[in-house]
Design a protein around this nucleic acid. Structure first.
Lengths: 250, 250
DNA sequence: AAAGGACTAATTGTCTAATATTTACCCCTG
DNA sequence: CAGGGGTAAATATTAGACAATTAGTCCTTT
């Protein structure tokens, strides 16, 4: 039996999205290229402008194109980045589909490997970059935002050095989520850590000692993770008692 | 200097998206709830229906709501799932921002941990599920699609058992990408593997032996990864020579 | 010459209003 | 009481107009 397949019911805009996406993936359009104007696409696809716009918006949301208004405006194909991955992660956290401890468990798992790989692939240029970061990290900071920025940088650069773009994407996403958490929970978290917290890791990487780098990173990730978990727990606690106070006062 | 911040220019639809998203995240709307009809939202937000529709479409694309046409239709809030994460990964692969070897390196890193955690949390119910899967896996298969389905199931269930939803999301995404690759490269890949390929892993998990489970999984992931990498290499090779043949013939 | 302003053309952004399509539900008939 | 047809509610799609943004051109004024 089962002779008839259900009629596939797709929205017009979805078909447009799919066609354009395929063109981009197949290389008919490359990063930097300009897609035809909306009104032209309208004629080519023989659908209304609304449909075209919905399709372009979908492509924009998934990071394939970028749209500008104005004289030289239009829709331009851009390089696919890790942005979307990161925001998918962030959404999952905001919706409480993933918890902080779960995230740090993964960090403890993958970041040592990143450090290990980085140590195996270290070059003079990378060394220089890392030394610059150490210096910046250990000099006095101006603002809190700068401080957070500075202290995530080491992780970012190590991820870039490690040579595995998948790991790089994961680490960068994790750092972005971590940043969100810090902003939400306690802006002072990072400052409470010693300025030289990354030095042992970076030194082992520069020395080209994979095992030591991995171990140093593991220790760092564990320690930092525990602090963050405790901090978030305290934050939630205080929120709850805050609500209770409100109730008892009001 | 730097006294003026640039005027942030947001589209109307983006503001609508943001407001609705916040409402969902803050729990004003829960999964299953129905958002007001487009025409009503139109009045509430005081914008045109086009803007509302673009906003709803964006929310749909990021997995927050689902829209149905018809009498009991409308826009319904749904549970955020890992779907978006997976499709972000798949896009990155299709755009060649991540390679197969890079992916398998990550699999070798995380799947043993998944197996380890599963072994530490094994329950009678989980045991039963795993035994069922083993049985299914080792019985003759009907179709190829079923075969692939069956052989990914073990990984899925272990990921669910492991108790870390982040790891679970990663494993499921990785499996989905792997499936894509298999479909693209060679539909016969999985069948070439022995039917009982997951037995050592599952047995160690059921026995509650974390280290053995992790080691068994590591071996499996390494082996399977190498086969896949080689297969994909061969596939690309054949594609190239195929093109060359075409050229020499045409 | 240089700076600033006005105009123009191209493009996306937004709105309004109408029509098409889908779907659950009610009612009616045989 | 089963099946068919109508109805209402909602989204899907279209068309056309107007608003806003932006780069470039050209012109005027200093």
């Amino acid at each position: 039996m089962k002779k008839f397949k259900p009629i596939r019911q797709t929205r017009v805009s979805e078909e447009v999205t799919e066609q354009i996406k395929q063109c981009i993936l197949l290389g008919d359009f490359n990063a930097g290229d300009k897609l035809p104007a909306e009104r032209e696409l309208m004629e080519q696809f023989q659908v209304s402008r609304v449909a075209i716009r919905e399709a372009l918006r979908a492509l924009e949301n998934s990071g394939f194109v970028s749209t500008r208004q104005g004289a030289t405006g239009g829709t331009y194909v851009i390089e696919l980045s890790f942005e979307n991955l990161s925001s998918a992660f962030i959404d999952l956290f905001l919706a409480e589909k993933i918890s902080i401890p779960e995230m740090f468990h993964v960090r403890v798992l993958i970041e040592p490997e990143v450090a290990r790989l980085a140590a195996m692939r270290i070059t003079p240029e990378s060394t220089e970059k890392l030394l610059e970061i150490l210096e910046k990290e250990e000099s006095p900071v101006n603002s809190l935002a700068d401080d957070i920025e500075t202290k995530t940088m080491a992780h970012f650069v190590l991820a870039e050095i490690c040579g595995n773009r998948f790991l790089e994407a994961l680490v960068k996403s994790l750092m972005r989520v971590t940043k969100k958490v810090i902003e939400a929970v306690n802006p002072n978290t990072l400052s409470m850590h010693p300025a030289g917290m990354h030095r042992p890791i970076v030194e082992a990487v520069i020395a080209g000692k994979p095992d030591e780098a991995a171990e140093a990173m593991r220790r760092h990730a564990l320690e930092f993770g525990e602090v963050m978990i405790e901090m978030e727990r305290a934050h939630r606690e205080s929120l709850r008692s805050g609500f209770n106070m409100k109730n008892s006062v009001g």
